[in-house]
């Protein structure tokens, strides 16, 4: 299999379409023949990150690099940034507004969940500039 690159622009205004890119990545991985367990780990991690991007950062861009060895997904936004990544990684810590909680999110499980489902998670964030998240899932 030749490496595959995927790119998605994520709207920050329409919460109803959040998850569309994750769904498309899932379908692509399925068509490439990855195992259901690997596909699930990737899509849950990316879906959480995509929701975060819409909820907190006003959208952004998602790039996925798929090879037989691993799936790497990079999410870049130009939102407010994360002041304290250690705090944001704690289960239950959330700064999500009330309207997001009403939609069933904002329980403070997003980043911990991304870590749980990925083999590697790198977060770079600068307050006022934005956040870049790199999710790697190994095809093992």
């Amino acid at each position: 299999m030749d490496p595959v690159k995927l790119h998605y622009d994520i709207s920050g205004t329409d919460f109803t379409t959040a998850g569309e890119a994750s769904g498309k990545i899932k379908k692509t991985l399925k068509s490439l023949g990855f195992s259901p367990a690997i596909i699930r780990n990737v899509t849950i991690a990316v879906y959480e990150a995509e929701i975060n991007m819409v909820v907190h950062a006003g959208g952004g861009e998602i790039d996925a690099y798929v090879s037989p060895e691993k799936i790497e997904v990079v999410l870049v936004d130009h939102g407010p940034g994360i002041p304290d990544i250690g705090l944001a990684m704690q289960e239950g810590w959330s700064t999500a507004p009330e309207n997001v909680r009403q939609l069933g999110f904002g329980a403070g499980m997003g980043l911990p969940n991304i870590k749980k489902y990925s083999d590697d998670l790198q977060i770079e964030s600068e307050v006022g500039k934005g956040t870049t998240i790199r999710i790697t899932v190994l095809n093992k």
Partner: peptide
Amino acid sequence: LMSDVLAFVKEQAMLLTGLVNPQVIRTAEM
């Protein structure tokens, strides 16, 4: 709480919920 579904569900094939929005379907899809 879709956050909980994403965090704790393993092989369950069915979701019962009182929440109505497209993210419920997305969560089940993932």
